[in-house]
Amino acid sequence: MVDHHTSLAKRHLVSWGTGTRHRQAADAEPAARPGALTVVLEDAGLLPAVLGGDLAGPHSLVLAPGVASSPLEGPEPGSPVVVGYEGSAAQPGDELSIGDSFFLQTQEYSASQFMSVIGPTLIRVFDGSDFAAYLADADRARAEGVFPAFATDPVIRLADLPSLGASPAADGPATRLYADADGTVSTAPGGAALGSAGDAFADLLGVWERVNKDSAHPCAVGLGATVPEAERCASLAERPWLGRYLAALDALRELRARDVSHLRVSGFGGRLSETAEPVAEAADAHGTELPLLLWNEQGAYVHSTPTGRFFQIGTDAARIAETVLACGDAETAAERVDAAALAKVTAFFERAGVPLTGRTEAAR
């Protein structure tokens, strides 16, 4: 039973820590019913208030320190699953453990390059210096193609991605909640307060929606108590490509886990093909709708962020794919590459459901 609890908690903690929806975290969209997919409590004394209200629903997993884990189907039909843990996931240097088989470390961003990675680690922005270090690493990757090695380690995850430039669509109280020792609730340990553990889910959701409605760059909640909102928004506005940078980190991390290394990422520090550069206002300059192209001396990979799929292709095909990605449409790309080869490459990705222009034939 412990192994099942651990496996379930690991999937939920990925979603909770990053602010994104893990594909296996739940079998239904949480927005259809009250309660967060994952709730992490710093104090077990808050458990009665959470279970007695609607912050957690039948689809929820609640992590509380020092308590016994409930059966996987919940203590009663339609009740949340409770998993006990030791430690904490709120401060740099903290470690959250479930049983004796899973340990999640928490580390501040600015110190991560100097730390040895031992196991699963969640890297957070805890203050302004962490945020500045994150931006500096992103800027270097964009200009030089050099990504921070620690951030591409397969056991590393960056926390609060929607507040760092990723899409905020999956974040919010329906995905995650965190209650500190005083019972103050946010979506993350460094987040803006949404209410308290005894509040109704609808009230917390209403506050979250209002805060983000007033922000030029949601999510404004995840780092709301950590980085001044004006500073965060200005930094993201200057770097509209940050979402693509974060997607590139995910792709590099996944391929590194498959023993694929020394990769370059198209659009970050250069291109593979001269036919893809220079392209004024390249279609793949920002956003994650268009696939990413990565390559090394052995070959190339096309990665679809929305689906999580990877395609390994030859270098010649990669040059054509990259040109289409940069141009934004096959017609413009045809002015730069061989038309017959272009048709074959684009048709392959169309059939795979990952069009290089972000549009399917049916939508054209």
Rank of each mutant, 00 (worst) to 15 (best):
R157Y: 11
Q105P: 00
H4G: 03
D43Q: 12
S261Q: 12
P65Q: 11
G299I: 12
S215N: 05
D214K: 07
R244T: 08
V83E: 04
D54Q: 08
E29V: 13
A363Q: 04
R309D: 15
A49M: 05
A136R: 15
Q312S: 15
A341T: 03
P168G: 09
V146G: 00
V265G: 10
L356C: 01
A151V: 02
V265H: 08
P168F: 13
E289F: 03
E254I: 03
A363N: 00
A192E: 10
S69I: 07
A339K: 12
D316T: 15
G195M: 09
T360Q: 03
L325W: 10
G74Y: 13
M115N: 06
G299V: 11
C219W: 06
A362N: 02
I313W: 10
A216C: 04
L135F: 02
L61P: 01
T332A: 14
A89P: 11
Q105Y: 12
D27P: 00
L325I: 06
G222C: 14
L252K: 00
S116D: 13
A36Y: 07
V260N: 03
A174E: 15
V337G: 01
Q113C: 03
A36I: 06
S88T: 09
V345H: 10
L325G: 08
F102Y: 15
A9D: 14
V227L: 08
A197C: 08
H5Y: 09
T360C: 00
A330Q: 12
D137W: 05
G222M: 01
A343W: 02
R309T: 14
A216Y: 02
L8K: 11
A330L: 03
F114H: 10
L205P: 00
P218T: 06
S261L: 05
P278R: 13
A321Q: 11
D182S: 11
S129D: 15
T6D: 06
P148G: 12
I123E: 04
